[in-house]
Structures are given as structure tokens and as C-alpha cells.
Design a protein around this nucleic acid. Structure first.
Length: 985
RNA sequence: GCGGAUGUGAUGAAAUUGGUAGACAUGCUAGACUUAGGAUCUAGUGCUUCACGGCGUGUGGGUUCGAGUCCCUCCAUCCGCACCA
């Protein structure tokens, strides 16, 4: 073979490993450059072709920076706590630690064979006690801190205690949920528990009640996306909104700084906008409404206090603390039913299904603060409890959701903006003039807002206020496979495990499930206590470990706290960060929060973790589905068998066509029972199903289809063109068939449904693994191909169609150095003008493309250059040596090989990057496109030193121009020297 | 619903400041070499037309000598929305 990539790649990968080629230097004089990839969760499916996309891009940039003389830090690790390993543990009993280690080993092998220039001496794993010791340490730091708004910083809790001891809450400007005011004397009389409770309202990591999606049957809390139609995705159990005591992080204290920081970092506007929205700063007013015959006041926040005269009712969340009290006896039944219904709906559903308008009247009335009118108080699930005050003053003329609610329940819609047609819908634009609003009449909206706030303040019923949509982040997880929270409870008081006893390691448990009482899995551990006091049983969320890992990489010695101070000072923050945009509001916000916190406490100098961010697009792939028919059987002589049981007993799968046919038949009794039966017989005659064991079951006389569910099926079992389930799969004993699943088909063929461009995941069985590609074409081809697919930031489907072309290119590149017999043919001849032009054009293009992260056009540039040099029959070292350095970031293995063949020793990785010299590109003439009325008609080669007038004259006199002018005189001629000529006729 | 993005040949795409639309690949067609081709090489390939030409960057409009690029309208698709990571 001419270009023996597998031998070359293995050799150089071994060389890099042996020589620690890519280890970042300690105590370097060079300028630093820190390139980081979001570390992967090591899933059981292994690395798929989507993962390396970002890694290749970051690797190209890292290698490029090394050529420019930077000390590059380019590490990799694993975000190795997470649900999938825990799910697997629940199913199989295998410790997640073992699963995770196996998966990491696979990832490492796969990463190594792609030839990344990672500094593996700094690897981190969030699940290793050595690492999470410091995650726990940071948690304790946060727990022992409060936010002083006066200094606009997190401070040690001791300064707060000192303030309480001297002044009580007087002159305190803290970020807190507490409204309790007390004097220093009060404080001195509080007992330990009372003090602890007060401090808890100030701590940045704190215990509080939060709403969660509780699934009683599973005994666990579910994520929004684990819930489908109010039922758990796994098992289909009911889920309810429930208040539970949870650890939370007071990220809201940082809302303004998180907002301001966005202006200092180089991220895309899209991501910044998402974060701005998430933080959701809004200016408006908080207003308290009195309630008739009650001393309760309902507090609302509105951005439109100017529309206060448009309020015709109030809506409070079904979970609002006053619901019970506000409900009159007459409405009791309705309200209770509605509260129960609302609890069954997920927050997502409540936000999404806006057309489904539901609510109930409490029977109570609030009093309008200005008009004194009665305002009915409703509950409605479009108002979310965890959001703002959990109550809104409804202005149906100004807010579409309020308008929909009013229409649905026949409530009044008073107009407050001149010219408003309240029958058509709400009008939320801020350009109108206020009317029907007493003292606000005639004011434009923007002025009215100020006037309304002033009036509200004067009346003492509220004040102007800035609100943030951002909520405190729930930090507890009722799971096993996460960092234990280093807290124990002594007489009900939360205390942290002493620093010198960290890490608090995960205990062994008999099962990875919650206890019978619904306690998290850690409660199963024997003696899960600290000095006789119970330890916290919830664990930390996935974002804990990933919020600070960038600092751990800076210190390879792992011997100096969470990271060595001198190294923190040298590396500062990540210069260039690669990762998916899906982390926009999770990881990317939380790590900014922790960085600001660590900065406040003086542990680090920097304020933002990631200076520049690149979001690589997702690589999707098609997924295939078949349809599982869930039936209810009536077996001869026996009672009806329930749906779930029948399905398990006799599950069958059908193609999309049959599923649709079944769906159309109303999912009741099948009209063509015989046909249905015949299909079963057909299967049996095809011996897909064990006949001997089914004879009894088949004696049913009726079956009902209860539902049809889509089930993903491994793409490797499905023919790519026809979407038929492969014959092999049907014939051979597969896993599904071993479980006695039946496939109903026509002519023994099952056509699967196909969905294109789906995110690759183990659960969809559509993962494309890079291993076979590397084996067949080599890592350099994979690297180039992934870059060649399209713009890095754009989502794109994976297909293998173009990979041959990229591979052919590398072989063509190889042939610039070798003849047909694979003899090395590079010469020391002097390069020609054309050859230098081809090279420098490429140097310019490649440099610009890397700088703007346009790697796909970079690959094209290499192809063009190689094509040109091949045509020029150029085999000259003067040209090729530079070209090899140029291509090294993209295709490092072949570059190392050729670099050494050309007589260089050692690695190419720090060779100087070629410098562009414009003198090779200077042209003496330009091929001018000549347009008539903007349409290009012909081109004309003209010297570049001609003046505008000379160009115009020459062009107009040309034969082509005369033909196109058709004897008419041009109205206007536009000449842009060096570019175009446009003639207007 | 709210928020963010994307629409260009048969396909992945290119066109960096408004200046020759479709570079570079894939696929396809024809040819060469070959016992053979899933190897290699050559030519062609936006649509339409015998041709001259006409039409072409999701839709409709606007600005401009000139628009894929700027402005407005509508449509379609994808992504995120707080316990997936």
C-alpha cells in the first residue's frame, strides 16, 4: 500500500505518548493558551462521531497555537457522575463505579486512536474521590458564605454573625429570603437552632423547600424530560408537584453580575441572549393587594404597573400558600379538584400547553387599591408557584394569557390603552396612550409606568422593583451516583464535615434504589452518619463537578488544595472553550457562578471562566422505529387479561403501515379479526415464534388494541435504503426475539419508520462509532472529514458519502512526496513563481480560516493546493516542507511522517508556522467581470494599473460590449478597479 | 407559549467588507486503462431551451448601478426552557 495510514498513525501515537509531546510546560516563559473541550459523560455506547467534532476543532486550534510558540494547555477528562450508570446499576446490580471505569477505558482507547494532542497527565474524573473531595470543599465554602450586597461580594458567614451580634439586622444589606428583623439583643437570646435557622436563610448553599416532580411509585424525583403526559417515562407512573426540602444554591445573588459579565466575554450573541433571558431581568413594581374580609395581602410583580386600572381579576398558582384560606366553602370542591389536577401537570406542560385554559374561582375577592372595586381571585396553572410571587394581577387587555383566561371564563376585559380593540386580543406594545385610568389618563405608556410606580409608593402598597426570572438552583439529587453532600445533622442543625476529613466518600449500598419510605439511596447505607449524627442522603447534581474542573486541570501535581495558586495565576481562565449550545443555561451559567464565588473568596483572580466560546453543532443521524402494539386479550374461557399483562405475555411489533392501519381502526375491536389472526399464524408458520408454547395463548377470540408505542430499533438491523428490518435479524435469534417478541409482517417484511437527523444516543440505537472509520480510513481521514462536513457551529446529519473524497485527497497529498512505486521523490529544486503562489495562497487561506474557526473551508484549501501542485508536478522541499507544517493541525500523523522523511528529527508539533508573504500573490492584471444592468455577460483581462477612465474606455470599445450595447449609449458605467465593471443601459 | 437559530444544485456545502452564485467534495453520465472493478485517470454535470436566450439562493415586497449578503412581511424546519448530560 502506498499511504499506509494505520502503520503511520500507530507509530506516531506511540511516539507522542512516549515523549509526552503534548504535556503543557510548567513554569514556562512562553505565553499561555488554554484550550478546553467540555468533558464528556462516558456513556455505555462509547464515543460516537459527534463527540470528536469539537475535539478535532479544538485540537486543530491547539496544535496551531503550539506552532505559534504558545505554551498550550489542552486537557481532557470525564464528567463521570450521572444517571445512565445509575440506571444500569438499578437494572443489573453492577456498581456504577465499575460501569464508569469500563466506559472510560473505552472512551480513552477511542480518543487515543484519533490522535488528539491532549495532555493526559492532567486528566480529571468528577467521580473520583480525589477530585470530588474538592467539589465538597467548594460546597462547604459556599455553605459558609453569605452575600453582602453592600460590598457586592460573597463573604464568610462569620462576618454576618458578627454583624448580628453587634447590630442585629439593622443596616444589613444582604441577599436573603428572610424577612425577619431582630436586634442584637434578640440575637443573643436565640438558641443554637434558632440562630442556625436564621443563618440558613443567608447561606449561599442552603436548605429550603422547593417544588419537585415527585413520582411516588418510583420513590424519586424526575426531570421534566423524564415525564411524558404527566406520567413517568419509565413505567408510566403518576407524577406530582411536591414541595420537598432540598439543598439549593443562591445563584440569584449573582444575577446582576452574571448579566454584566456577559459583556466582557467573547461568546456568540445567541448564547449570551439565552443567558440574559434565563436571568430575565425586568423592571416594574411589586404591588400588594388587600383581600376582602381577610388580613392577607397578595403580592404581585408586574412590569406594567401603568395598566393597573386594567386589572379585572387575579390569578394565583394552585400551589400558592393562601389557596386554602382564600377558598370559600362554596368553591371548596372545585378548587380542591383543580389543585389536584394541577399537581399532576408538569411545569413544562403548564408552560407549553397555553391553549388548554384551565382554572377555578376561589370565591374570594381582592380590593383594587385605587378604585376599591372587587377583583375575583382565581387559581390557574399558567401561573407558576416557583416563579416570582406565584401570583399575577391579570390585565386581560395587555397580556395574551390573561386575555385567553378572561375569554374562557367570561371575565371582564377593560381597555386601558386608547384605541384598543379588546375583542380581538391583548395588546402588549408599549407605544400607546393610557385611558380609563384616572390620574394616568393621557400619558404615554413609558411615562405612565413611572407615574404609576410613584402613586403606588405614595399609597404605601408597593414599590418600584427590579426582578430576575433566575431562580435559586436546586442542588439536591435523590440519587446514588453523585457527590455526597458533606453535611450531617446534629439535633436538626446542618453542620459540615470538617475539611480535613474530606472526601466524604460514597457509601456502599445494597440496591441503588430509594428506600421503601422514599428516602434517597444513600439512606440504605449502613451507618451513614458522622459521629453518631445522620449524614445528608441526597447527592450533588451533575453540574457540581463540572462547575470548577477547568481549574483542576491547571495543576497536574494535585497536591495544593483545589489547584496550585501559582498555576492558577499563570493559566488564569480558559481562552477558548468548545462545547454544545445545549449547555447554555446549565453548565455555562453555573460555572460562571462558581467562578465569581471563588473570586469573591480570593481563591482565584479571574471573574469569568471561559473567555471565548465556540458551540459546535450536533451531528445527527437517522433513527429507526418499529411499533409496539399494546393489546388487551380475551382468551377463550378465561377472563380478560389486562393490557400490560397481555402485552408482556404476547408483545408484538408492527411496521408503520400496520400501526397506522390499526390506529385508524379506532384502537378498539379490530374489524378484521381474522386478518389479525392470520397475521399471527403467519408469524408462527415462519417459526419466528415458538409454536409449541403459544398454542394456548392463540385461542383468544377477541383482542383490543390499547395503544401503539414507537420503539427505537438498532439502525444496524435496518436496511438503509428500504428501511426494511433485515432478514438476518428476523431469522437469527436476536435479543428481542429471545424475549419472545413477535413481529407481525406482510410477506415476512417489516418496514420501519425512519426519522432523520436525530441526536445520537444509546437509547435510540443510532450511534455511529468512529472505530470502524479509523480502521478503514485512518484517523487523519476522520479528522479531515469531520471538519469537511460543514461549518463547525451548524447542526448537520452524519453520512459517510463524502469520506472517500477526503481519503483520496490524503493519498493524492502523499503522492506529492512519492511516485507510483511509493519511492520518496522530494527534490531540492528551486520553486517556481506558480508554485510559490499556490503555497502562499494556501498559507493565507489556512491561517485566516483557523483564526475564524472555519475548518471546512480550510480542508477545501488543502485540496485546491494539492490539486494545483499535482498539476504543476511539484515535488520540491521548499514548498512541501511548509505545506506539511500547515496541514499538521488537521492531519498530524501524515504530517509527522512526511516531516521526518524530509530529514527533520523529532516532532513537527512545535515547528514554526509558515508565514504568509504577499509578494507571491501580486498580480499585474485582473479578469474583470463585465455586467449589463447587474447581469454578468463576459469577462475581460485588463492590467491592474489602468485608471477608472481607461478601464471604462477599453471595455466600452471592446467587441463584446458593442454587441451587448446594441447601439444604445450607456446611461452610466460603474467601474470598481480590481473588481468589476457594471454598465447601465 | 417564551427564547435562540437555520433555509443556496440530486447531496454535504462555498461565496470573509453588497461586486463573476454553486469553489471544494459526494453522486450521476460518458470515455480511457483493465481478465475484472467497489482501483486509477479524463471530460461533463443548477434548471430550462435545438439554439440565441430565459430563469435561478424558502415566500412576497423594498433599498441599490449591483442583493445569497442590507431592511420589512410571511412560511417551513431545528434547538433550549431549570433533576438528561
Amino acid at each position: 500500500m502506498d499511504y499506509n495510514f494505520s502503520e503511520i498513525e500507530k507509530r506516531w501515537q506511540a511516539y507522542w505518548k512516549e515523549n509526552q509531546t503534548f504535556a503543557a510546560e510548567e513554569n514556562s516563559e512562553k505565553p499561555k493558551y488554554y484550550v478546553l473541550d467540555m468533558f464528556p459523560y462516558p456513556s455505555g455506547a462509547g464515543l460516537h462521531v459527534g463527540h470528536p467534532l469539537g475535539y478535532i476543532a479544538s485540537d486543530i486550534y491547539s496544535r496551531y497555537k503550539r506552532h505559534l510558540g504558545f505554551n498550550v494547555l489542552h486537557p481532557m477528562g470525564y464528567d463521570s457522575f450521572g444517571l445512565p450508570a445509575e440506571q444500569y446499576a438499578i437494572q443489573t446490580g453492577q456498581h456504577p463505579k465499575i460501569t464508569t471505569e469500563e466506559n472510560i477505558a473505552t472512551y480513552r482507547r477511542q480518543l487515543d486512536q484519533i490522535g488528539f494532542s491532549f495532555d493526559w497527565s492532567r486528566e480529571v474524573r468528577t467521580s473520583s474521590p480525589e477530585y470530588y473531595k474538592w467539589t465538597q470543599w467548594i460546597f462547604i465554602q459556599i455553605f459558609n458564605s453569605w452575600y453582602n450586597k453592600a460590598t457586592d461580594k460573597a463573604e464568610d458567614i462569620s462576618t454576618l454573625i458578627a454583624h448580628f451580634e453587634q447590630h442585629g439586622t439593622a443596616n444589613l444589606n444582604a441577599h436573603t429570603d428572610s424577612e425577619i428583623q431582630f436586634t442584637y439583643e434578640d440575637w443573643s437570646f436565640y438558641n443554637e437552632k434558632e440562630k442556625a435557622d436564621i443563618l440558613m436563610d443567608y447561606r449561599l448553599a442552603f436548605l429550603a423547600d422547593s417544588f419537585v416532580n415527585w413520582c411516588p411509585a418510583l420513590g424519586t424525583v424526575l426531570a421534566n424530560d423524564e415525564i411524558k403526559d404527566g406520567l413517568s417515562e419509565r413505567g408510566g407512573h403518576p407524577v406530582e408537584r411536591k414541595k420537598m426540602q432540598q439543598w439549593s444554591m443562591r445563584i440569584t445573588a449573582y444575577a446582576q453580575r452574571l448579566l454584566d459579565g456577559l459583556d466582557t466575554i467573547d461568546w456568540t450573541d445567541a448564547i449570551k441572549e439565552i443567558q440574559r433571558n434565563w436571568i430575565g431581568k425586568s423592571k416594574g413594581a411589586s404591588i400588594e393587594f388587600d383581600v376582602e374580609n381577610s388580613d392577607k395581602k397578595i403580592e404581585v410583580f408586574t412590569t406594567r404597573p401603568d395598566t393597573i386600572f386594567g386589572v379585572s381579576f387575579m390569578v394565583i398558582a394552585p400551589e400558592h400558600e393562601y389557596v386554602t384560606e382564600l377558598t370559600t366553602d362554596a368553591q371548596k370542591e372545585a378548587i380542591e379538584a383543580y389543585v389536584k389536577y394541577a399537581a399532576s401537570r408538569s411545569e413544562r406542560e403548564r408552560q407549553t400547553e397555553v391553549k388548554k385554559i384551565t382554572g377555578a374561582f376561589t370565591g374570594s375577592y381582592a380590593i383594587h387599591p385605587f378604585t376599591g372595586k372587587q377583583i375575583p381571585i382565581w387559581i390557574g396553572d399558567y401561573v407558576l408557584a416557583g416563579y416570582g410571587t406565584g401570583a399575577v394581577m391579570a390585565v386581560p387587555s395587555g397580556d395574551q394569557r390573561d386575555w385567553d383566561f378572561a375569554k374562557h371564563f367570561g371575565l371582564e376585559i377593560p381597555a386601558v390603552i386608547e384605541g384598543q380593540n379588546v375583542e380581538e386580543g391583548a395588546d402588549d406594545n408599549k407605544n400607546g396612550i393610557i385611558c380609563n385610568s384616572e390620574f394616568l389618563n393621557g400619558l404615554p405608556v413609558k411615562k405612565a409606568i413611572g407615574a404609576a410606580i410613584k402613586a403606588i409608593q405614595e399609597k404605601g402598597i408597593g414599590k418600584g422593583q427590579t426582578n430576575y426570572r433566575l431562580r435559586d438552583a436546586v442542588f439536591s439529587r435523590q440519587r446514588y451516583w453523585g457527590e455526597p453532600i458533606p453535611v450531617y445533622f446534629e439535633n436538626g442543625i446542618a453542620k459540615t464535615v470538617p475539611m480535613n476529613e474530606l472526601p466524604l466518600t460514597l457509601p456502599e449500598v445494597d440496591k441503588y434504589l430509594p428506600t421503601e419510605d422514599g428516602e434517597p439511596p444513600l439512606a440504605r447505607a449502613e451507618d451513614w452518619s458522622y459521629k453518631g449524627n445522620p449524614l445528608e442522603t441526597s447527592t450533588m447534581p451533575g453540574w457540581a463537578g463540572s462547575s470548577w474542573y477547568l481549574y483542576r486541570y491547571m495543576d497536574r501535581e494535585r497536591n495544593h488544595g483545589f489547584a496550585k495558586v501559582s498555576n492558577l495565576d499563570y493559566w488564569k481562565n480558559v481562552d477558548l472553550y468548545f462545547g454544545g449550545a445545549e449547555h447554555a443555561t446549565g453548565h455555562l451559567l453555573y460555572s460562571r457562578f462558581w467562578t465569581k464565588f471563588l473570586n469573591d473568596k480570593g481563591f482565584i483572580e479571574i471573574d469569568e471562566p471561559f473567555q471565548k466560546l465556540i458551540n459546535q453543532g450536533m451531528i445527527g443521524h437517522h433513527a429507526n422505529y418499529i411499533f409496539k402494539v399494546n393489546i388487551e386479550l380475551e382468551v377463550e374461557g378465561i377472563e380478560k387479561i389486562a393490557a400490560v399483562q397481555a402485552t408482556n405475555l404476547f408483545p408484538f411489533y408492527v411496521s408503520k403501515e400496520i400501526a397506522e392501519e390499526y390506529s385508524k381502526s379506532g384502537i378498539t375491536n379490530l374489524p378484521d379479526l381474522e386478518i389479525g389472526l392470520a397475521k399471527f399464524e403467519n408469524i408462527i408458520s415462519n417459526s419466528i415464534y415458538d409454536k409449541s408454547k403459544t398454542s394456548n395463548i392463540l385461542k383468544f377470540h377477541r383482542f383490543q388494541i390499547k395503544s401503539i408505542t414507537e420503539v427505537p430499533i438498532d439502525i444496524k438491523f435496518v436496511d438503509n435504503d428500504s428501511n426494511f428490518l433485515s432478514q438476518k435479524f428476523l431469522e437469527n435469534s436476536s435479543e428481542l426475539i429471545r424475549q419472545k417478541h413477535v413481529f407481525v409482517s406482510y410477506n415476512n417484511q417489516i418496514k420501519c419508520d425512519r426519522e432523520d437527523n436525530v441526536k445520537m444516543s444509546k437509547s435510540k440505537f443510532n450511534v455511529v462509532n468512529p472505530d470502524q472509520i479509523v480502521e478503514k480510513y485512518g484517523a487523519d481521514t476522520l479528522r479531515l472529514y469531520e471538519m469537511f462536513l460543514g461549518p463547525l457551529e451548524q447542526a448537520k446529519p452524519w453520512d459517510m458519502d463524502g469520506i472517500e473524497g477526503v481519503h483520496r485527497f490524503l493519498r493524492k497529498f502523499w503522492r506529492l512526496f512519492h511516485d507510483k512505486e511509493n519511492n520518496y521523490i522530494v527534490t531540492n529544486e528551486k520553486a517556481t513563481k506558480e508554485e510559490l503562489k499556490a503555497l502562499h495562497k494556501t498559507i493565507k487561506k489556512i491561517t485566516e480560516d483557523i483564526e475564524r474557526f472555519s475548518f471546512n473551508t480550510g480542508v477545501s484549501a488543502f485540496m485546491i493546493c494539492t490539486n494545483e501542485l499535482t498539476d504543476l508536478k511539484c515535488h520540491k522541499k521548499e514548498i512541501l516542507e511548509q505545506l506539511v507544517v500547515l496541514i499538521e493541525p488537521y492531519a498530524p500523523h501524515i504530517a509527522e511522517e512526511l516531516w521526518n522523511k524530509m530529514g527533520n528529527s523529532g516532532s513537527i508539533s512545535t515547528a514554526q508556522f509558515p508565514k504568509f508573504d504577499g509578494k507571491h500573490l501580486i498580480e499585474s492584471s485582473h479578469k474583470y467581470p463585465v455586467s449589463f444592468n447587474g447581469k454578468m455577460r463576459f469577462t475581460m483581462e485588463l492590467p491592474l494599473d489602468l485608471s477608472k477612465d481607461e478601464i471604462e474606455k477599453t471595455v466600452l470599445e471592446s467587441e463584446d460590449a458593442v454587441k451587448w450595447l446594441e447601439g444604445k449609449a450607456p446611461k452610466k458605467v460603474i467601474v470598481v478597479p480590481g473588481r468589476i465593471v457594471n454598465i447601465v443601459i
